[in-house]
Design a protein around this nucleic acid. Structure first.
Length: 363
DNA sequence: TCTAATGATTTGAA
DNA sequence: TTCAAATCATTAGA
């Protein structure tokens, strides 16, 4: 069956009475009720279909020729015919595509949105970055001394990411709106000469929005990655390692060398050492030192001392002498205070040669 | 820029 | 859980 015959057959079901819902398709009401009018209309349809088929066979330039186009546009049956053609289009290919358009929200996009919201990048700015920084600091369990500096650094970087994200998002939205308007105008313009229904335009707009939202997803993804990198840098204590102050190291070394026979401080001793070392902070030196840092320090010291006793010998002698001098001073003070008390052995808290257990542990 | 020192983390054993 | 040992990552000095 050729194209013109098929269209004619389709139009055979047109409700020419002008009452919608009976024949499925609606045409403008007839001018009269006599058979001549119906014959005239059939003639009209045949005429306009002939024009369309002629244009179809022509080149674009020929088809665009003003008189032909104008003639077609001004034909009194044109709106009815376009309405029919729109319905045919709706009921064929587009309806199949339409069924696929009802997609559930993308879980990946939802995840990204939630994360950006939680990190304070998306949504209203209400100190989300600060909260995230505080949470990160709490999770890191690190020293609190320079947390405020770290927080402001983290906040500044997060704000930067937030700004870039919003600027880019705005750009995408603007571009999307501009493109949508452009396409809508184009389709509206085209709808004068092609059967394009508003529904079809709406569908096209949805397609454009989906395309742009997939671009937005890339932006969200890269923003999330940037936040994760920033977070990991903030959380990784190794990256913000600070050497202990000289005073703190001296306190720890003094304890280590004076307890060289058993350099395993108890929990109480560790707390005491951490407290002592942290006092230096109040004197404007270094950062606070936690009990776990003291544990790390002793762990490192034991293994490094054991690995290279020779290298640490000088240091050991130095602290032994220091401890001896301190003890002597203490004794002298004690003697001065109480002539009756006999002095204790000066070396009792001093250096003692290490010995190792069979399993390798320092004894 | 290279390297040693050093604080932190990971892994496996007790 | 604690510790030893290995390793990582950063700092500081030459």
């Amino acid at each position: 069956m050729d194209e013109q015959a098929r269209i004619m057959q389709t139009l055979g079901g047109v409700n020419l009475s002008g009452h919608p819902g009976q024949g499925g398709m609606t045409l403008p009401p007839p001018h009269g009720h006599d058979g001549t009018d119906v014959d005239g209309r059939k003639q009209d349809i045949g005429d306009i279909l002939h024009q369309i088929m002629t244009i179809t066979d022509q080149s674009l330039d020929e088809a665009q020729a003003k008189n032909r186009k104008h003639g077609l546009n001004c034909h009194r049956m044109k709106p009815a015919l376009f309405s029919v053609l729109c319905e045919i289009k709706e009921k064929t290919g587009l309806s199949i595509r339409g069924a696929q358009e009802e997609e559930p929200p993308d879980p990946q996009l939802m995840r990204l949105d939630n994360m950006l919201l939680a990190e304070g990048v998306a949504g209203p700015e209400k100190g989300g970055g600060a909260a995230a920084a505080a949470a990160a600091a709490a999770a890191s369990g690190g020293a609190a001394g320079d947390n405020s500096i770290e927080h402001s650094d983290y906040r500044a970087k997060l704000t930067q990411i937030r700004q870039i994200y919003h600027t880019e998002l705005e750009k995408y939205e603007q571009a999307c709106n501009e493109f949508t308007t452009h396409v809508m105008n184009l389709l509206r313009e085209q709808s004068r000469t092609r059967p394009i229904s508003p529904k079809e335009i709406e569908r096209m707009v949805n397609i454009i929005h989906r395309k742009f939202s997939s671009i937005q997803m890339q932006l969200k993804q890269s923003t999330c990655e940037a936040v994760m990198i920033l977070r990991s840098r903030f959380l990784d204590a190794r990256r913000k390692r600070r050497n202990f102050s000289k005073q703190a190291t001296e306190i720890l070394n003094e304890y280590f060398y004076s307890h060289l026979s058993n350099p395993y401080p108890s929990e109480e001793a560790k707390e005491e050492l951490a407290k002592k070392c942290s006092i230096t902070v109040s004197q404007g030196v270094g950062t606070t030192i936690t009990v776990s840092q003291v544990s790390n320090w002793f762990g490192n010291k034991r293994i490094r001392y054991k690995k290279n006793i020779g290298k640490f010998q000088e240091e050991a002698n130095l602290y032994a002498a220091k401890t001896a001098v301190n003890a002597a001073h203490a004794v002298a003070a004690a003697v001065q205070n109480s002539q009756t008390n006999s002095p204790t052995t000066p070396n009792s808290g001093g250096y003692s040669a290490p010995c190792y257990q069979s399993d390798g542990r320092i004894q």
